[in-house]
Structures are given as C-alpha cells and as structure tokens.
Design a protein around this nucleic acid. Sequence first.
DNA 1: CCGCATGTTTGCAGTGTCTGCACGTTTCTG
DNA 2: CAGAAACGTGCAGACACTGCAAACATGCGG
Lengths: 199, 199
Amino acid sequence: MTAGLRERKKQATRLALHEAALQLVAERGLEHVSVDDVAARAGVSPRTFFNYFPTKDDAVVGLDPRQAGELAEAVRARPASEPPVTAVRAAMLDQAREVAREPQLWPLRLQVVDAHPALTARLSAVFEASERALAAVVAERSGTRTDTDAYPALLAAVQAAVMRTALHRWLASDFTADLPALVDEGWDLVAAGLPAPTA
Amino acid sequence: MTAGLRERKKQATRLALHEAALQLVAERGLEHVSVDDVAARAGVSPRTFFNYFPTKDDAVVGLDPRQAGELAEAVRARPASEPPVTAVRAAMLDQAREVAREPQLWPLRLQVVDAHPALTARLSAVFEASERALAAVVAERSGTRTDTDAYPALLAAVQAAVMRTALHRWLASDFTADLPALVDEGWDLVAAGLPAPTA
DNA sequence: CCGCATGTTTGCAGTGTCTGCACGTTTCTG
DNA sequence: CAGAAACGTGCAGACACTGCAAACATGCGG
C-alpha cells in the first residue's frame, strides 16, 4: 500500500506546507504571511513551494483538484434505480462523515478560510470543479444534457449550496454540531421546496 | 440627478477601465494583458488603475461591491405578507430583467469570465457578499437567525445557485434565450423539490 | 554494490502585481 | 476667487510567481 519512498516524501512535504500555511495564517493573518515564511516553517526552499502549490492561497486551502471528482464518482457508484436527488444526498452524507472524521484539519481550515474572502473564493473554485463533474454524472443518470437542460447543473449547484451552508453552520456551532445531521436538515428543506419556516 | 463633474468623471474612468480590461482580455487572454496595458487603453496612468480597482481581476469582472446589497434591498422592499421564497423569486426576476437589458456588457462579461477560472472565483466572491446580505434580510422577514437556523443561508445559497445556473444556460444559448424565463424555470424545479426529470 | 536514468530540490534572474508616500493639479465650497 | 478637499501621477519597494540550469536523491539493471 505504501508506495515508494519518493511518493511518501512528496505527500509529507505537501502536508507540511499545507499545515505550515494554515497555522501561520491562523496566527498572523493572510497578508502577514509570505511564501518564504511558509517554506521556512515547512523546511524547504521557497522555490520548492511552487512545485507543490500554484499559489499561496492554494496552499492554505490545501485541497487537491483531484478531490473535485470524488463526489461525482460516489454518485456514479450508487444504484441506477435511485432518483438523482436520493443518490446525490446519500453520497453527500458519506462525504460529510469523512470530513467530520478529520477533527483537526477541517475546523482550522474552515476558520481560516472564513476569515479571508480571498480564500473563500479559492474554495469556491474547488467546489465549482466538483459541481461540473457532478452535473455530468447527473446528466448521465437522468438522460438530460448539461448544456441545454436546467436539471443537472441546478441539482449540482443546489448540492453545493447545501454543503456550504452545512459547513458554515458547523463552523458557527464551533464544531459541536453533527455535520451529517446539518446536511440532512438542509436537504429536507430543499426537498420540501424551501417553505417559510414555523409555518 | 447628474452629480457633480467630479463624480461623473470618476464613473467614466471606472467604466473606461472596465471596458478596456474586458476587451483586452477577450482579445488576448487574461495572462497576456497587464495592468499597464489596461491603463494605457483607458488613458490613465498605471498608478491610477489601482485607485479604481484593487486587483486586475476585479477590473475585468467590473462589479461594484456596492451592487452586492441590491438584491437584498429589493427583497426588503417587497410586501411583508409574501413568503420569503416568493419575495426572493420576484426580486430575482427584476434583477434578471435588468441584466438582460444590457445586451453589450453582460454577454461579453460572462464569456470572458467563463473562459478564465480565476475570474470565476472573483465573481463568486461578489455573489457571496450578495448572499450574506440576502440571508440577513430573509432572517428578518422569517424571524430566524443567520447563524443558527438553516433557512436564511440556505435560501440565499439556493438563490445564487439558480442565478448562476440561469446565467450559464444563457451563455450556452449564445444569449438567444430569455434570461428571466431561465430563472423562472430554475425556481419551478426548486419549488418542486428537484424531482427526477421526465417523471 | 555500482552507475545510469529519472524525478526532485534549489538558486538565480526576471516579470508583473500591488502598496505607501509625496507632490502637483483639478474640482468643490463659501 | 481663495482655501480645502479630492484626485492623478511618479517613484521606490515588497512580494508572488516563472523559466532555466545546476546539484541532488531515488529507483533500477547489472
């Protein structure tokens, strides 16, 4: 399972850079942290930093573009008999459980990102890539097209809306709330067509 | 109505910079346009560029942060008897009509933004500011809270999802489709709880 | 255990973004 | 028609990011 030494070292360096960036920004704020600082704390040269992340912001967010397709794959793996919303909802719950299982990194990530609009934008970019992949899978499953029909893109966009909202409420609860439950609650509201509350 | 000369000049300069940025990026691509180029075409010094836009990307997108609160204000102005979804939907249709009324700028903007992921992120930032303002108004109207309840943030996020999807389909139709109709169609799907199509 | 092929790290030089500061010019107010 | 306030501009400098070429580490066949 453990690939060669080379591969393990690369993963370690990547994680070291991400954690260094995250901690430094949490301490001093985004604009008071330079790439040189991050590289120094991670123990590599400044030039090496850019072998791992294309921008400073990406290192702070620390999400692989590869992860963007994960949700879409999970949806594709679900039984074709399920309606799209059901499949997406189930896949999302799995994903929420994964996130909640990492109680060190994710809360810090969310706090730091929330405090800096520039990072929020970067995170949105990852979400959008994920959305596109999801829309494609939904189109497949529902026999629609991503470019002309509203359904796939809309379902993917709403999925992202539910996830973002849940993550934000998780943050607001200081990570005491149960993330999957927040996701579920969001989907219940959507499934009901967003009726006025306390009605 | 026309404010003083000073104010009019500022608006003109701002627009000139935005249009210069938009055209140049459409011609050459984002990375082959420098701030100096944009300033030169707009007829101001490079230093002045930064008196109007904090970054190059912002000049291309060209949206005032002030506009972020417009939708929220429009919702606040609607009769309190309307359910939140109805009020938001109506305000959004007005906004879509406004956008469709600018058949020069918006299509070019959308094409250019769509072609450059970095700009998409910038546009997302504007949407998010708008979302926050909208969530606050929805919370007011529905007697809920933005930090603990799911409803306001979720409605705001779904609104953004509907708008983004509609804009993207408008682009995909080469701007031949009717934007307000696309918005309507999106809301119909959401109101029905996103049922599987062709059902 | 050696040495070559390949992938990784690093330094260096250069371009471009963006900021603070100081100064001259234009618009506004009375 | 002043004096105040706002605006435009040049300059110097910090920082982000890239291409290139030279060290360096690792994996692999002998």
